Simulated assay, not measured.
Amino acid sequence: MAIEFNRILTMLRKERGITQKQAAQDLGISQAQLSHYEKGIRECSLAFVVQVADYYNVSCDYLLGRSAERSGQTIQVEDLPEANTPTTGSVYRGSVLPTMYKKLIENSLDILYDKLQESKDKQLITCVSRYLMLAVYKMFRMMYDASGRNVVGMFRISPARWQGSADAAMHLTEGELNAVLLGEDANHDSIDPATMSLSTERLTADYPRHATSLLNLVKNAEEAMRGLTRESN
C-alpha cells in the first residue's frame, strides 16, 4: 500500500497546485506528518485514507493503487469505447484478453494523437509516430521471425542487423523527441505548455471515456516494469 499511496498522495497535491503546508492544514495534520506520508516513511490510518479521498474527490481504491480510475471504477471490455475504425477481418475467436488490450492501446493512442493535433507541430507528430511505428515493427518482426515458414524477403534489414538497427533508431528518435519537447532546437518553436497539460484530472475531464483506457494502460505498464525490476533483483 505504502508505495502506491505515497506516490498518488503527492501527485494529487501537486496536480491541485497547493503546497504541502496548505494541504496539511486542510487535512488537520502537521506538515512534517504529511511529508512522512508522501515519502512513505510512516503508515497512515484507514480514517486518514478516507479523509484524503474526500479531500481530493477520488476513491480509496484509486489512492491505494487498486484502480487506475479516479472514481475507483473497475473496467470491463464492454466499458471501453470502440476505436473509430475497426480493423478489417479481425477475429479474436471470443478471447477477452486481446480485445481488452487492443482497446486500451487504441483509445490511449486517440488521446495521444488528439494532443499532437492540438500542438500543430509537424516535427513532434513525426517523432512520436516514428517511435510508435518502430515499436510495432519490432513486435511484428519478432513474431514473424519466430516461424521458419515465413519468408525472409519481406524485410530489407537482415536478421542479424534488424534488432540493433531498430533499437538505435528508437533511441535516436527519443533524443530528437526530447529536444523538441524541451525546446532545445534553435530552429524549432517551443511547444505550448497548455498542450502538455496531462494531469489525471484534466485528462478525465477532457476525455471522460477514453481516459479510463489511458490510466489503465499506465497502471499495467508500470506493473510490468516493477515485475521486471523485482526479477532483476
Rank of each mutant, 00 (worst) to 15 (best):
M1R: 12
M1W: 05
A2L: 14
I3S: 13
I3L: 12
R7P: 00
I8E: 01
I8P: 00
I8S: 01
T10V: 04
T10L: 08
M11H: 06
M11G: 00
L12I: 02
L12M: 02
R13Y: 15
R13H: 10
G17Q: 04
I18L: 07
Q20G: 08
K21A: 11
G28E: 13
I29D: 04
Q33H: 14
L34K: 06
S35Q: 11
H36S: 14
K39F: 03
I41W: 05
R42P: 01
E43C: 07
E43A: 13
E43P: 01
L46W: 12
F48A: 01
Q51E: 07
Y55C: 06
N57L: 10
S59E: 01
D61V: 03
E69I: 07
R70L: 15
R70Y: 05
G72I: 09
V77H: 02
E78D: 08
E82P: 02
E82Q: 14
A83M: 14
A83V: 10
T85H: 13
P86K: 02
P86A: 06
T87R: 12
G89A: 00
V96R: 15
M100R: 13
K102Y: 09
K103V: 03
L104Y: 09
I105P: 05
D110N: 06
K115V: 00
D121V: 05
K122P: 05
K122C: 04
Q123Y: 10
T126H: 07
C127M: 10
V128C: 14
V128F: 09
S129L: 12
V136C: 03
Y137I: 04
D145T: 04
D145A: 01
R149N: 10
N150M: 06
N150P: 05
N150C: 04
V151S: 15
V152D: 13
G153L: 10
G153P: 03
F155H: 12
R156Q: 11
I157T: 15
A160D: 15
A160P: 06
S165K: 12
A166R: 00
A166L: 03
M170D: 02
M170P: 02
L172H: 13
E174S: 10
E174F: 08
E176G: 05
L181N: 05
A186I: 11
D189M: 09
A194S: 13
T195W: 03
M196K: 03
S197H: 14
S199E: 02
E201Q: 14
D206S: 13
Y207W: 01
R209V: 03
H210D: 09
S213P: 06
L215P: 00
L215S: 02
V218N: 06
V218F: 09
V218I: 15
K219C: 07
N220G: 13
E222A: 00
E223S: 08
A224T: 00
M225T: 05
G227H: 01
G227R: 01
L228T: 01
E231Q: 14
